[in-house]
Design a binder for these strands. Sequence first.
DNA 1: AGAAATTAGTTTAGTTCTAAAATAAACCCG
DNA 2: CGGGTTTATTTTAGAACTAAACTAATTTCT
Lengths: 173, 173
Amino acid sequence: MQTIDHDAVAASSPLAADAETRGTDDHHESLRLWLRLLTCTQMVEREIRARLRERFSITLARFDLLAQLERHPQGLRMGELSRRMMVTGGNVTGLTSELVAEGLVDRAPAPEDRRAFAVRLTPKGKAAFDAMAAEHEQWVIGMLAEVSAPDRATLYQMLGTLKRSVSRMQEAT
Amino acid sequence: MQTIDHDAVAASSPLAADAETRGTDDHHESLRLWLRLLTCTQMVEREIRARLRERFSITLARFDLLAQLERHPQGLRMGELSRRMMVTGGNVTGLTSELVAEGLVDRAPAPEDRRAFAVRLTPKGKAAFDAMAAEHEQWVIGMLAEVSAPDRATLYQMLGTLKRSVSRMQEAT
DNA sequence: AGAAATTAGTTTAGTTCTAAAATAAACCCG
DNA sequence: CGGGTTTATTTTAGAACTAAACTAATTTCT
C-alpha cells in the first residue's frame, strides 16, 4: 500500500508566519499533529483491512462487531453496537443480518422490550473470532514494534487526553 | 455525535493472562493503543467532515485534494495526488473532474508526458481554499486545546516513530 | 386511560470509495 | 526498430456507509 503521508494542509496558511502572526504560529503545530494522526491511523487501518480480507475474508466492520460482542457475553442491543462502533443503526442492521446468516452471531428478542434485540456471539462465532483476534493482535504488535514500550504507554495516556479534549469541544457545540 | 469509543478488541484474548503468557501480556497494550488511536481519529474526522459539509458543502476528500495542490503550486499529477491522499486513482479522477467543473482546479496536459496531467489550483480555488483552511485550522486547534503544547510536541514526535514503524513492517511484507 | 413524545430498529435512496479491468502512452532492450 | 513491460489515467461494477423517512413499541404527561 501507499506510505506517503499527506501532512499537507499544515502548509495552508493564507499568510506565512511573520512577527504579527507569531502568537498563533504554534497553532500550525495542532494542524500538523492532526494530519499525522490521520496518516498513522489510515496506514494501520488499511493494512489491517487488507489482511482481514485476504486472510479471513472479513471486513473490519464485521470484525469490530464480533469484538464488541466478545467483550459483552451477556449480549448487546443494536443501538448499543451502533454507539460503540460509531456507525449508523442502519449499518448495524445489515452487518448483524449477514453475521446471523453466517451463523456467527445470534439475534434474539430482548425479554423486557419487544422492540429490541439481544445480539450475542454463537459458539461458532466465538471460535472464529478468537482465531482471528489472535492473528490480528500479532499484526498490530508488529506494526507498533519500533515504538518503545514506555513510548507506547505515553502515547496511550496522551491520546486519552486528546480524546477527552475532542469530547468536550463536541459538547460545547 | 457519538463519543463512546470502542476499545473493545483489546479484551479479545483467547485466554486470560497467566504465568505463561506473562511475557506477551504487555502486548495487549499495543492493541489498546491502536484502538485508542482509531477512536481519536474517527472522532476528529467525523467532526471535521460534518463541519466542512455544513459550513462549505465540501467533502473531506475534496478539501484534502485542494490542500495538496495549495502546497504544490507547480501542480501535481493525478498519480501523485493518489499517493499523497492515500486513495485510489479512480477516486482522484472523479474528485478532480468535479473540482474542474466547479472551477476550483485546472487539469492541463503535462508537457513532457502525454499520458499525464498537471493539476493546479485556479485563483478561485486558491481563494476558496484559503477561506476554508483558516476556519478548519481553528476547529482543529479547538479540538486539541486541552492537550498541552509540550504534549502535542511529544505526540507529534512519537507518532512520527509510529509511522516509520508501520512503514517498515509494510516493506517487510 | 389515551394522545404526544421518545426510543429501537429497519428500509430506502444516494454518496463515496475501492478493486480490477481497460486504454493508452512511454520505456527498455536485444 | 519492435515486442514486451511498465506507467498514467479512466472506466466499470460493486462494497460499505450515511442520512432521512418509516414502522412499531414504550414511556410520559395530564
